[in-house]
Computed example of a mutant assay.
Amino acid sequence: MKSSPIHVIAKWKVKPGELATVLALLPEVVKASSEEKGNLFYKIQQDNADPDTLLLFEGYRDEAAAAEHRNSVHFQTIVVGKIVPLLESRELNVTTPLTFA
């Protein structure tokens, strides 16, 4: 059975006054995540109406690659350890792309 790609759409609402700190931490996260063997893409967008809202679009080869990302040192250290405490809220949607003929 062929495994399916996993796409993650994360919405981060940054606490007031913490955006500069979060933005300063993100380049290292993007670089390390993009270099992961099972990574397909890792993109971050900023909401035009609310700059404190960031949207992350991540793609992984399969669920194993997504799990490897979540367990990586850079994710645990920077995202979980340093960024998450600076967020008001964090929503995650883990999806499987649909293909239509």
Results as ranks from 00 to 15, higher is better:
Met1Asn: 10
Lys2Met: 13
Lys2Trp: 00
Ser3Pro: 06
Ser3Gln: 15
Ser4Ala: 14
Ser4Arg: 14
Ser4Pro: 00
Ser4Trp: 02
Pro5Asn: 09
Pro5Gln: 10
Pro5Asp: 07
Pro5Cys: 03
Ile6Cys: 02
His7Asp: 09
His7Tyr: 15
His7Gly: 01
Val8Asp: 04
Val8Gln: 09
Ile9Lys: 02
Ile9Tyr: 09
Lys11Gln: 15
Lys11Leu: 11
Lys13Ile: 08
Val14Asp: 03
Gly17Tyr: 00
Glu18Val: 01
Leu19Phe: 13
Leu19Pro: 06
Leu19Asp: 06
Leu19Tyr: 12
Ala20Lys: 15
Ala20Ile: 03
Thr21Pro: 01
Val22Ser: 02
Val22Pro: 03
Leu23Cys: 10
Ala24Phe: 09
Ala24Pro: 07
Leu26Ala: 00
Leu26Met: 11
Pro27Gln: 07
Pro27His: 05
Glu28Thr: 14
Glu28His: 12
Val29Lys: 03
Val30Asp: 00
Val30Pro: 00
Lys31Met: 04
Lys31His: 10
Lys31Val: 06
Ala32Ile: 02
Ala32Trp: 00
Ala32Phe: 03
Glu36Gln: 13
Lys37Ile: 04
Lys37Gln: 13
Gly38Arg: 04
Gly38Tyr: 05
Gly38Asn: 05
Asn39Met: 01
Asn39Ala: 13
Asn39Asp: 03
Leu40Phe: 07
Phe41Glu: 10
Tyr42Val: 01
Tyr42His: 14
Tyr42Ala: 00
Lys43Val: 12
Ile44Met: 12
Gln45Trp: 13
Gln45His: 15
Gln45Lys: 11
Gln45Leu: 14
Gln46Ser: 03
Asp47Ile: 01
Asp47Tyr: 08
Asp47Trp: 07
Ala49Trp: 05
Asp50Pro: 02
Asp50Glu: 14
Pro51Trp: 04
Pro51Gly: 01
Asp52Ala: 11
Glu58Phe: 11
Glu58Gly: 08
Gly59Cys: 08
Gly59Thr: 06
Gly59Ser: 08
Gly59Ala: 07
Tyr60Asp: 02
Arg61Met: 10
Asp62Asn: 15
Ala64Gly: 07
Ala66Gly: 05
Ala67Cys: 08
Ala67Glu: 15
Glu68Val: 02
His69Phe: 11
His69Ala: 08
Arg70Lys: 13
Ser72Val: 06
Phe75Gly: 04
Gln76Glu: 11
Gln76Phe: 07
Thr77Val: 11
Ile78Trp: 01
Ile78Phe: 00
Ile78Met: 05
Val79Cys: 09
Val79Trp: 03
Val79Glu: 03
Val80Gln: 10
Val80Ile: 13
Val80Leu: 14
Val80Asp: 04
Gly81Cys: 10
Gly81His: 11
Lys82Asn: 09
Lys82Ile: 04
Lys82Met: 11
Ile83Gly: 02
Ile83Met: 10
Ile83Gln: 02
Ile83Thr: 02
Val84His: 03
Val84Arg: 12
Val84Leu: 14
Pro85Glu: 09
Pro85Lys: 11
Leu86Pro: 06
Leu87Cys: 03
Leu87Glu: 02
Glu88Met: 10
Ser89Met: 07
Arg90Pro: 00
Arg90Tyr: 14
Arg90Leu: 14
Arg90Asn: 10
Arg90Ile: 00
Glu91Val: 08
Leu92Cys: 01
Asn93Ser: 13
Val94Cys: 06
Thr95Asn: 15
Thr96Ala: 13
Leu98Phe: 10
Thr99Trp: 06
Ala101Ser: 14
Ala101Val: 08
